[in-house]
């Protein structure tokens, strides 16, 4: 039997309440949590919302999530062959699934404005 990592992921979007869903993903040493979440999208459920750009370089800093309650970058946290709990950041507005509003306030779209 190949080892498996089980990602227990916060799902849903406001105004609804969220809930957890678990996804087993094949585990290969060296992979990141982001690798695991992307695997879920491509093989199980494409509606899982994630946020990331650079994937490897750890340059965009868009992939911040809570893993087992700790704030980390999804792309630099190693996937482990056990259950891991993935949630959106608590101190930011929740957008969908594990995505929260992370853009600096003055770089967000204003409601109505001409520049």
């Amino acid at each position: 039997m190949k080892p498996v990592a089980t990602l227990t992921v916060w799902r849903g979007a406001p105004p609804q309440e969220g809930h957890y869903e678990s996804y087993p993903v094949p585990f290969e040493p060296g992979q990141s949590v982001l690798d695991g979440l992307r695997h879920v999208r491509a093989h199980v459920d494409p509606t899982l919302a994630l946020r990331y750009s650079c994937i490897n370089a750890n340059a965009c800093k868009e992939c911040m999530v809570l893993v087992d309650g700790k704030t980390v970058y999804g792309c630099t946290t190693r996937l482990e062959a056990r259950e891991m709990r993935i949630e959106p950041l608590r101190n930011k507005d929740w957008v969908r699934d594990v995505v929260s509003e992370i853009a600096p306030p003055d770089e967000r779209l204003p409601d109505h404005q001409s520049a």
Partner: peptide, 19 residues
């Protein structure tokens, strides 16, 4: 000129340049 600088990701963070 008045300018809007738009990006599908974060400003200055999401393309090749920062990498």
């Amino acid at each position: 000129a008045q300018v809007i600088l738009a990006d599908r990701g974060l400003i200055g963070r999401s393309g090749a340049t920062v990498m």
